[in-house]
């Protein structure tokens, strides 16, 4: 059969055979994805590090100037402030997101009417474009017509409208609140998926042994949730640390640079400012923080699994 067909369609058959070779097919299958990722991800990552060592400006290729960008950044009070802001923003927002997100996940894990519907609308803040919901927050933080101030003054808690975005610390708290608002659903839905895999018999066994609700939470829920918690934490820290949209939409770094994050400062220096080299240096300066945060949150929390040597699945 194969011989008879082989004579008639020899070129086509050999092409099909070649295509069926595991190695050839592997290369062909990987080509589009790897090609795009190498060209538009790996290469720019290296290029960004290189640009940080040059004085490139928009429309003019730069020359190598060593670590001059980093030296000048170390004396730059705005850059140092942005590092401080980024750390405060990331740490405070992450703690709040995980505290409230875990609470919401525990609430959603109860059996109740309309459970699927409630779970669906909880995720809404995460789905809607960040910039567009940030605009709603900007409007709610308006110094004259803020609805939050309106409610607080009707309740008699304040006698003057709050200037949410005018004072440095108030502005920091405001953007953190907006970030937490958007992050809670993501954390809650991911942790809920983890909670649902914990067998109820574990709780029943613990209760029979005399564990109170707090002990059941501390000694059953938390350890069982740790693997998924560490992954969610890694993602959350990473995306909070490099956040750009929310700040750009609500404050653009103001007042007095009090809410500038490293990402927004890099953008401001590089694109409107034209100092590509300096912007790239700021962006590159984020990498060590990111590597540290990833390693810390992943291995720090997944200690047990990692020690048992089964992390390769």
């Amino acid at each position: 059969m194969a011989v008879a067909l082989g004579r008639q369609a020899a070129p086509r058959r050999s092409f099909v055979e070649l295509l069926d070779d595991r190695r050839v097919l592997s290369v062909l299958c990987m080509l589009p994805a790897v090609g795009l990722l190498v060209t538009f991800l790996a290469y720019p990552l290296g290029l960004g590090v290189w640009l940080g060592f040059t004085d490139t400006k928009i429309g003019r290729p730069g020359v190598f100037i060593g670590i001059d960008n980093y030296i000048s950044l170390f004396d730059d009070s705005v850059f140092l402030l942005s590092v401080y802001n980024t750390l405060v923003y990331t740490i405070v927002a992450t703690i709040l997101k995980f505290g409230l997100g875990l609470w919401l996940a525990l609430l959603l894990n109860n059996s109740m009417p309309f459970k699927a519907f409630i779970r669906a609308i909880v995720l809404l803040p995460y789905i809607i474009p960040t910039v567009l919901s940030a605009l709603a927050f900007w409007w709610m933080y308006d110094p004259q017509f803020s609805v939050i101030s309106y409610v607080l003054s009707k309740m008699g808690l304040i006698d003057r409208y709050v200037d949410f975005l005018g004072q440095p610390n108030a502005a920091r708290a405001s953007v953190i609140a907006a970030n937490v608002w958007r992050g809670i659903p993501f954390v809650a839905i991911c942790l809920l998926a983890g909670l649902q895999t914990i067998s109820p018999s574990l709780y029943e066994a613990a209760a029979l042994d005399g564990a109170n609700p707090w002990q059941r939470f501390r000694n059953v829920t938390v350890p069982m949730l740790m693997p998924i918690l560490s992954v969610v934490l890694t993602f959350s820290v990473l995306f909070t640390f490099t956040d750009f949209q929310l700040i750009y939409a609500i404050t653009r770094g103001g007042p007095l640079n009090a809410t500038h994050l490293m990402a927004t400062l890099a953008f401001q220096r590089a694109i409107p400012g034209g100092q590509m080299g300096e912007g790239a240096a700021i962006a590159t300066a984020m990498i060590p923080f990111l590597v540290f945060a990833t390693v810390f949150s992943y291995y720090g929390l997944q200690r047990r699994k990692w020690q048992q040597g089964s992390a390769d699945d």
Partner: peptide, 25 residues
């Protein structure tokens, strides 16, 4: 390769947009 692709997901756009801008020009 699978692991590298996962790591690629951890590279945020905020550190890529400046070099990408020069490439786009």
């Amino acid at each position: 390769t699978g692991l590298l692709i996962f790591l690629a997901y951890l590279v945020p756009p905020s550190i890529l947009f400046i070099p990408l801008a020069t490439m786009v020009y």
